[in-house]
Design a protein around this nucleic acid. Structure first.
Lengths: 211, 211
DNA sequence: TTCCAAAATTGAGTCAATTCTGATTTCGTG
DNA sequence: CACGAAATCAGAATTGACTCAATTTTGGAA
């Protein structure tokens, strides 16, 4: 057995993560020095690098927790969506966006996104890309669900719609975190406006007749 | 007047930029050391920092040149687009994408994008965001033009469509540069498929009747 | 209990970007 | 031509992420 060893490992891991989260929040990503995180976690610098490949990995671990929470909340909407395409999309997107700043500041998001593009092959990068993928899948699942309910025309390419919605949302979210001044309310308004075009295109009742 | 002084300044600037472009291409962004760029440009390290705030700024300047070229090429398409919504979009997007790797490697794109998210307030970041904005505007202009020709229904929100198209394209482009294995052909194919949904929604002849 | 190989931790050292310094050069102007 | 402001120079100092050889700890076998 290696019960004790595993427990110590988990303890240290948790301490490191907590220290990192705290310092990232207080001092920002750049401002949080590895030495400071190590000191806070009562661990040496080397140990941190034993657990995480680099500073970015630490951040990703935190982002992951946040996104997984959001994904989980989204499950409910997919299972029982509002019976209207526009509202359904708005509700799901609302969950994503409203929760986005719970644990992460805009600056942390910026860093996380930047690192994931910069190092797509690092553990961080892979994790982040996988999360994006899962979010896309969830939106696609919602579209499919709406098709089941007969709210979305059966002949539309649901996958394409889901990807469009996610990619647009993600890009708008990036712009949102890039500007400190922009607000969640503005972001959601802009997304609603953009999505309206799509909603009208795929909603069943809006069409006069099938080709 | 300060003719000579300005000329020398421009000369130095050009030398720095050329040196940076060459070394970025040869050694990659990380591999290109500032000292090496300074040596190649026959300038001191301090002078580089006199012209550019940081290494990233150098890269952005290069990206700018590339994007401006692409924007210029796009003007022609907007002025005289194919008389079919799908083809028009495909042609404009084709210009953007086919030229994208002329001077910049995927790695350089990754760095540039990462830096622009990381430091949205730096000169680099601002420039990059402005370029994105201009690209969006160009796509919107194309949509508007197609509306003039009666190819796009006059009641659709052209701005929203343009933004959707650009944001989706940009996000797909990010994924494209993140994966070394993915090809331009694949990217264009995926974009065509995604855009088809939109094209059908906004094209005039597809609608049976107005509400 | 004692001892060992493997696993984990340590922290001083390396590397490269960025900043800083004080001296020197360069134009434009009076 | 001489002067001064602005740029440039060379390179030393700083900073902070990351590495790695040496040391310590651990779990279990004898």
């Amino acid at each position: 057995m290696s019960g004790l060893r595993a427990k110590h490992k988990a303890d240290r891991d948790r301490r490191i993560l907590e220290a990192a989260a705290e310092l990232f929040r207080e001092a920002g990503y750049e401002g949080a020095k590895i030495e400071a995180i190590a000191a806070e976690a009562e661990v040496s610098v080397g140990t941190i690098y034993n657990y995480y490949q680099n500073k970015g990995d630490l951040l990703v671990a935190i982002v992951s927790m946040e996104v997984n929470e959001v994904l989980n909340a989204g499950l409910g909407v997919v299972a029982e969506p509002p019976r209207n395409v526009g509202d359904a999309l708005d509700t799901l997107i609302g969950i994503y966006i409203e929760h986005s700043l719970n644990y992460l500041s805009k600056e942390m998001w910026r860093q996380a996104m930047a690192i994931s593009t910069q190092q797509p092959e690092s553990p961080f990068g892979r994790t982040y890309t996988a999360l994006d993928r899962t979010l896309t899948d969830q939106i696609c699942a919602l579209i499919a669900r709406l098709q089941e309910f007969g709210l979305v025309r059966p002949d539309v390419d649901g996958r394409a719609v889901g990807e469009l919605v996610f990619n647009n949302m993600n890009m708008m979210f990036i712009e949102f975190v890039k500007r400190d001044a922009s607000t969640i309310v503005e972001l959601r308004g802009a997304l609603r406006r953009q999505n309206r075009v799509l909603v009208e295109a795929v909603s069943k009742e809006k069409r006069v007749a099938e080709p």
